[in-house]
Amino acid sequence: MHIPDGYLGPITCAFFYIVMVPIWYLAFRKAKEKMESRTVPVLAILSAFSFIFMMFNWPIPDGTTGHGVGGALISALMGPYAATIAITVALLIQAVFFGDGGITAFGANCFNMAFILPFTSYLIMNLFKKAIKDERKATVIGAAVGGYIGITLAAIFCGLELGIQPFIEPGYCPYPFWLSIPAMAFAHLTVAGPVEGVVTALVLEYLYRYSPSYLKLEKIGPKMLGV
């Protein structure tokens, strides 16, 4: 889901930078309110986890590849604003040093993977927490389902951004949305989504068993999504 340079026209690139600026600002401000120095290493480990997790490319039945992001896990442990920061850092290093995701497309890539994914999964997890009494069950299942839906929604946004290019800014991604959206949705509904969901559930279940203190970290997220 890392859109390279040359796939999005300048207007689309500028648009997503402009959209991301207030999200980055809010994430930083909220984190500044709630972040404690003892949780800084946790944020760093989770950001590193996301970076490494994205290096595991999985085969998609149509001959392409896909990967998980770890956004649902970070969101479940530290809240979606913390996830925005952690994933933005991973995406920045990927773009600048490894050419994975473009510099011009960085705003759009952050919008999909560092905003849509963690905020969607957080909302869904909290809906599960409201519906299911058992906190542990609700967190594990809710975050996993949230990861599955969240990464798929992020991929659909990615497909939309690519697929509108031929109509609004010809000269960049030539493939229309009726090809790009189904392709992105398919890869994430079949493989990358289940990977994101299962890994989220496994890590949360492990932490509940052996290091439950990590589940009590303060969640940095908007009250609105607390449900």
């Binding site: 760093a44 480990i45 590193a48 920061i85």
Partner: peptide, 13 residues
């Protein structure tokens, strides 16, 4: 990634 997130985290904390 660890260095950058610790730097940002330190500023936030």
């Amino acid at each position: 990634v660890v260095l950058l997130s610790i730097a940002i985290g330190k500023i936030m904390a």
